[in-house]
Amino acid sequence: MSIYFQQTYQRAFGTYPLRGETCRQAIAAALATGYRAFDTAQMYENESEVGEALAGGGVPRAELCITTKVGVENFANHLFLASVERSLKALRTDYADVLLLHWPAVDGNIAPPLRQLQKAQEKGLARHIGISNHTARMMRDAKAIVDVPLVTNQVEFHPLLNQDVLLAAATETGIPLSSYCSVARGKVFEVPLFAEIGALYGKSAAQIVLRWILQKGVSLNTMSTKPDNIRANFDIMDFTLSSIDMARIEALTHTNYRIVGRDLVPYAPEWD
């Protein structure tokens, strides 16, 4: 895995739930800001807009890191690879830089889709593969099932949710975490601590939250349609939170505010 990939993947621009011209304009602003990693999924139904925006964005394909995810409805052996090929056609690319399983298999048997995922990589449809929304036990099982490294487990990760079990599994398995819902869909802005700490560093509350996630060893996916916010979300590499401030934020994880549960996604696993 190249240093360029590792550095680029640290800060990705997420595209859910963007569609149409809103999606294309947001990606154009993200490219202008410096984003080179972009995250989409079959489930988002915006791969064609993402592909169009990236193809016309003036950045060479080799400098981009494109992630997409296979939906559970395409996990069957006779559907999996064809669905990936459709995604790549929509994205206007011959390969995904990162191809993920969006969710664990509904029946809990994660082995068949993981083997299809590895097959997609072997056929050159993906440079790297990984998982999303998998539990710690599933991370351990996944590592044993596939013969190649899994580059991430993309999960809900923000300072209002304790994910220590998954962080420990990431260390144990060597499968790094990456975040979605990085600012808890705005819930963090109801907590005064982030703005208070931000005043100490000359940064916004959102930048403090994102920097905390990075310093936890977790890569970021962030989304905004506002150019100023897109730039601010990217501009988090010029400061470091002190151990004291990291600990002050850490205390908030016991809030255990989870956004993506079975009430929202009925086939979500039993979370750690």
Rank of each mutant, 00 (worst) to 15 (best):
S2K: 06
I3H: 15
Y4I: 03
Q7G: 02
R11T: 07
Y16V: 01
P17Q: 08
L18E: 00
L18Y: 00
R19G: 02
R19E: 02
G20L: 02
Q25F: 04
A26H: 04
A29H: 14
A30M: 02
L31M: 07
A32R: 08
T33I: 11
Y35H: 10
M43P: 00
S48R: 13
S48P: 00
S48L: 11
E49A: 10
G51T: 03
G51Q: 04
L64K: 08
C65L: 13
I66L: 14
V70P: 01
V72I: 07
F75S: 03
N77Q: 13
F80V: 09
A82T: 04
S83K: 13
S83L: 06
V84G: 01
R86F: 01
R86L: 10
S87V: 07
L88N: 06
T93N: 12
T93Q: 06
Y95H: 10
L100G: 01
I110W: 01
P112R: 06
R127P: 00
G130N: 11
T135Q: 04
A136L: 10
M139F: 15
R140L: 07
A142T: 08
K143D: 04
A144M: 03
I145K: 13
V151T: 14
T152L: 13
N153R: 04
V155Q: 02
E156L: 10
L161F: 05
N162Y: 10
Q163A: 08
Q163K: 10
G174Q: 12
S179G: 08
S182M: 06
R185Q: 09
K187L: 11
V188I: 14
V188H: 04
V191A: 03
E196Q: 15
G198F: 04
Y201D: 01
G202S: 12
S204M: 05
A205H: 01
L214D: 09
K216I: 04
G217S: 10
G217L: 12
N221D: 09
N229P: 00
R231C: 05
N233S: 09
F234K: 05
I236M: 06
S242L: 03
I244W: 06
M246T: 02
I249E: 03
N256V: 13
D263K: 13
V265L: 15
D272R: 08
